[in-house]
Design a protein around this nucleic acid. Sequence first.
RNA 1: GUGAGAGUAGCUCAGCUGGUUAGAGCACCAGAUUGUGGUUCUGGGGGUCGCGGGUUCGAAUCCCGUCUUUCACCCCA
Length: 431
Amino acid sequence: MKIPPVKGTRDFYPPEMARRNWIIDGWKGISIRNGFEEYDGPIFEYLKMYQIKSGDEIVEQLFSLQDRGGRDLAIRPEITPTLARMVNQQINALPRPIKWFSVPRLCRAERPQKGRLREFFQWNIDIIGIDSPEADAEVIFTSLDYLRRVGLTAADVRAKISSRRLLASVLRGMGIENSCLDAMYALLDKKAKLPADAFDALLAEHVPDKEQATRISDFMALDSIDDLQRLVSADDDTRVAVEQLQNVFATLELMGVGDYCVFDPSIVRGLAYYTGVVFEIHDIVGELRAICGGGRYDNLLRDFGGPSIPATGMGMGDCVLEILLHQKGLLDSQVPPRRLEFFVACADATLAKAMYAVAARLRAGGQSANFSYKLGGLSKQLKEASSQNARRCIIIGQEYVDKQELIVKDMASGEQSQVHVDRFLAQLSGT
RNA sequence: GUGAGAGUAGCUCAGCUGGUUAGAGCACCAGAUUGUGGUUCUGGGGGUCGCGGGUUCGAAUCCCGUCUUUCACCCCA
C-alpha cells in the first residue's frame, strides 16, 4: 500500500535538507551576532493557550488532539505563547533585557497555497523587558541584517513600519469610536491588496461621513512620518506615537539600514495583541506575501498571567523566504554542496581490507571518508568518488603492500602524490 | 469553507478531432574502461496514463464522481 505525504507537508531529501539547514543556520548565526540567546519549548501545548488571545475561530486552524488523560492539546501554531509562558515562569530570575530567539517547527491547519504550508519553520526573535523604541528598531534591524546577509538589497525588499498606537490615536482624533477600531484595522489592512478605487469604495461603505473618509484616505497615503503633523491634530497620544516612530527610524538610519525602511500606515498586522510599533518586510514587487512581520506586544505577558512587562518581536517563516531567494538566484548559489574529504579506493579487490582500515583511520582523525561497496575497477570507484564530490582520493595499490604507501589524488587538479600512510595521517592531524 | 486550473516513468513534459505493443530529455543502473573520475557512446530497468464508474466495437484521450495538487478568496498568529 502506497501512502502519500500529508497535505501541506514537505519531504526534505538531501538537496532540500541542505537548503533548509543553510537557511536555519543563517538565522541562528545572525541571532547570535545580534546578541540573542536560543530557547525552545515543546511542540505541543494546552489547546487553551491558543484560545486565550484569539478565541475559538483559531481552533479550526489548529492541529489539536486529546491525550490519553483527556487533556486537550494542540500542536504549536506559533511560539510566542510558549515564550510568554516560559518567561512568566521564571520572570524574577531572568536577567534583563531578555533577548531570545528560536527556530520552531510550527503547524497550522490552513489550506496550503503559495508561500504557506501546513508545516513550516519560523525564526522568532523577541526582546522582553524594554519599552524603548530602540528595542523595536533592533528587532527590525536584526531581521534586515539577515536578509542583507543572504544578499537581498534595498532594491529587493522593503521594511514597512507603522504603529498601532499611532493608528488608534489618529483614528480617534478623526472621530472614530473606540469600538470601531478593530473593524477599521481589518479594513486598513486590506489597502495594499486592493486597487485604489476598490479600497475607496470599501472605505466609503464603512465610513459614511465623506469628510472623515477623505481624511482617513489622506492619512493612508502618507509615506513619511514627517508629513504626519500637517494632517492630524497632534494630541498627546499621537505626539508620543510619532516620536516613538521617529526614534525607530532614526535608530535604523544610524545602524545603516535606513534605505530598507519606509513608513507605511497600511501595515496593521492581523492579530489584536500588538500595541505599538508594527512592521512587515515585503519583496519590493509586492508579489509575495510578507517575508516577516512583528511588532510590540506590551500586554501579552500580563494576559498570560504574568506581570505587565513590555515586549517586542518578529517572526519570519521559511516558505516565502525560500521562494524569494530562489527567484533572486540567491539560494542554490549559496547553499554549500555535499562535500566529502576523502574517498578511499583500492586498485584490486584483494586490497579491500586495507581500504577499510585506512578509511577508518581517516574517520578516527575527524575526516569524512567513504569507500565503494562494489569492488569493481578503479575507474568505477573514482567515478563514485566524483559523484560524491570528494576532495581527495586515496588509492591503495601495490605500493601499499610493498611500502605502506598511499596514492593521494587531488580530484580538482588531478595531481597525485605517493606518501607513507603513517606520515600522511600524522600530517592531517597536525594541520 | 468558496471558486478556478492541473494530474501520463523518480523529475520536466509530448502523446492530433477516441484507433495496434504509451514516448522523449534528465536522473538511476550497467557496459565500452581488470591501476585513474568529471566528457562521450551503447544498452537496461522503471508506467494498473491519480482512483472509481459511465459512453463506445475500442478510452491516456469524451462524460460523471472522487482523491491529490497548484493558484486565488476567507484567514493569516
